[in-house]
């Protein structure tokens, strides 16, 4: 096996190890359980109320939007935060010291962040099957669509997380350049209420970003066919969803290696030392 392919294989194993470690880490677990628990309670309490004028269950309408926001959050904020932290603590420099270590590190991050989205999705998807009626009326095709959005959507926007993580200089920057923008985009993307309730120009802006389309494709899977009337174009548009998501993925795939590479080239022992000193000052 050529050494680069070998290093990528080592990276896949690394991602899996990191994932297993995170499942055993109390802080990660409590994060998953608190968020998922809160959302499930919300969905459970609203299981019988209907959205005015539609006859649809409020919880069934809310679930796709919640999942869309989760994917966006997990795939953008997760890796950007991790990258900033691991640059600061020297993990990245260690990777750089090994042959093809950076290829391996990035592979590990992709695997880890991708797997990291799953526990939340399982926690959010499995219980509602038992207490929400009429979930995924399309049956197997619908569940396949859900799986497709999760896999394709996560992979498409992971590069955005890597780019933000490369550009942010310290953990607190991640709040400004990742968490706030993602929340803002989620807010206009029909996650919390139907997009048609927005001004027309906001609807146009929202359709540029993938979050709306995650929600769109998930609603197609979760809701009856007639609910398409509440979407931005007044009907379902799966090819549109696919196109926007894939386009984001391609742009990210082209840009992220360069930006990551440029960031990694600057890493050295003294750079880590300097950030450590700066952090000590910040914290102490």
């Amino acid at each position: 096996m050529n050494p680069r392919a070998h290093a990528i294989k080592v990276g896949v194993k690394r991602g899996w190890t990191e994932f297993k470690l995170s499942l055993r880490a109390p802080d990660d677990l409590s994060f998953y359980l608190l968020w998922a628990g809160g959302l499930l309670v919300f969905l459970f309490l609203n299981r019988h109320s209907t959205v005015e004028g539609t006859g649809l269950s409020a919880s069934v309408v809310a679930l796709p939007g919640v999942l869309a926001a989760m994917i966006a959050f997990g795939a953008v904020v997760g890796p950007s935060y991790q990258l900033v932290l691991e640059r600061e603590d020297g993990t990245l420099l260690r990777a750089k010291a090994a042959p093809f270590g950076l290829d391996s590190y990035v592979t590990g991050q992709v695997v880890y962040q991708f797997l990291g989205v799953l526990p939340m999705l399982v926690l959010l998807l499995v219980p509602p099957v038992f207490f929400l009626d009429g979930l995924v009326p399309r049956g197997a095709v619908g569940w396949l669509a859900v799986l497709g959005v999760v896999v394709l959507g996560t992979l498409a926007i992971l590069p955005v997380g890597f780019i933000i993580g490369s550009l942010a200089r310290k953990p607190s920057h991640v709040t400004t350049v990742a968490i706030l923008p993602v929340m803002g985009i989620a807010a206009i993307s029909g996650v919390f209420f139907p997009i048609t309730a927005m001004w027309a120009w906001v609807q146009v802006v929202a359709q540029v970003f993938p979050v709306y389309w995650f929600g769109h494709a998930l609603r197609w899977a979760f809701l009856p066919d007639g609910a398409g009337a509440f979407e931005a174009g007044g009907q379902w548009n799966l090819p549109g969803a696919f196109a926007v998501i894939v386009l984001w993925g391609l742009v990210g795939l082209v840009l992220s290696p360069r930006i990551l590479g440029r960031m990694a080239r600057r890493e050295s022992g003294s750079a880590v030392e300097a950030r450590k000193a700066e952090r000590m000052q910040r914290v102490g």
């Binding site: 020297g90 993990t91 880590v272 030392e273």
Partner: peptide, 16 residues
Amino acid sequence: QSWRAGIGIVLQSWRD
């Protein structure tokens, strides 16, 4: 990259 296989660097771990 193969050159790195012959090089060892002792980096000071901090929290990694």
